[in-house]
Design a protein around this nucleic acid. Structure first.
Lengths: 164, 164
DNA sequence: GTGATTGCAAACTTTTTGCATCCGA
DNA sequence: TCGGATGCAAAAAGTTTGCAATCAC
């Protein structure tokens, strides 16, 4: 991870480079693709900086979101979650947030990237003059393993019915 | 609104038809397309049933969500919001949740329906065996009026620069 | 030195829960 | 009558804030 670019980004916003701030970013960078809660990050942070406070974690997560290094998202379980968006210096022509498919059966979360919203975003711009800068897509449904369990349960029931 | 179908739906789940339950549904039906918070609905409900409790509102909103009469959504302002999904008896071959475009400038919310996720959902099913039953799409960006304000501000600045 | 940042605790906000009472079927 | 539903208050849970002490620059 390019720390000097991060320091530059902070300097531009007149923010200081503190140990805690660096640590939070490092931890997020060490867990790409994961959807960590503030509490998760707090627990990880305390391993290396036991005196850190939860409020500091919240404040620094917000700084990193403002710098567009993290995405803030919700998987509808009551927690705000954070996911690495890009490493400092990794410029992207367009912000490319992950989409998530959440299993209603077991709560498993599948992440994916896909650019199928372009048509939608274009029509929105033409019709409303609304220019899209970011999007969040959540799909709800049932994953393969839950569907197979469901199938098994149905078989059981049928067998039971036959036996009865 | 077909009250008898609603009563039938409740009976099937062994739930009772209470005044409060009816009232919450009526209020939601009277505000289609709006994204009301529990507090909003509580305020509206108290006009006609001053003794109603906020907890009752929450409990009945959840009942209506379970019956698929309401959609639960978040516009990222810290409130869970509720929107009429369909009236009792209005069967839809597929659940058709609204999508929302949220303006980062002024907070305005634009709702729309569109079926551009079919390809995405199909590929998800083929690749992961994940079957989608519902989806939530949020687009973030800037609405026309905020973009025009932004444009004006740029013009001002240019003029100032020229004058200086 | 100055101003941002931290850690701690208290406060805040939204939502849920326990429980005695009430009411619908 | 009986079990679900209600209203109230208290609790829960996640997040934010106030403030004195500390740290980065």
């Amino acid at each position: 991870m390019d720390e000097s670019i991060f320091k530059q980004m902070l300097k531009e916003k007149k923010l200081k480079v503190t140990q805690q701030r660096l640590l939070v970013l490092e931890l997020m960078a060490a867990h790409p693709g994961e959807h960590l809660t503030a509490e998760d990050i707090y627990e990880l942070a305390r391993e290396r900086c036991p005196e850190i406070g939860l409020a500091t974690v919240y404040r620094n997560l917000q700084v990193l979101v403002d710098l567009q290094l993290l995405d803030k998202l919700s998987l509808d379980d009551g927690f705000t979650r954070y996911e690495l968006s890009q490493l400092p210096g990794e410029e992207q022509e367009k912000h490319h947030r992950h989409h998530h498919a959440i299993c209603s059966g077991c709560g498993a979360v599948f992440s994916f990237e896909e650019d199928l919203l372009d048509t939608l975003e274009q029509s929105l711009c033409e019709r409303l003059g609304f220019v899209v800068t970011d999007h969040e897509v959540k799909l709800y449904g049932y994953c393969r393993s839950c569907r197979e369990k469901q199938k098994d349960r149905h078989s059981d029931r049928q067998i039971t019915e036959v036996i009865d």
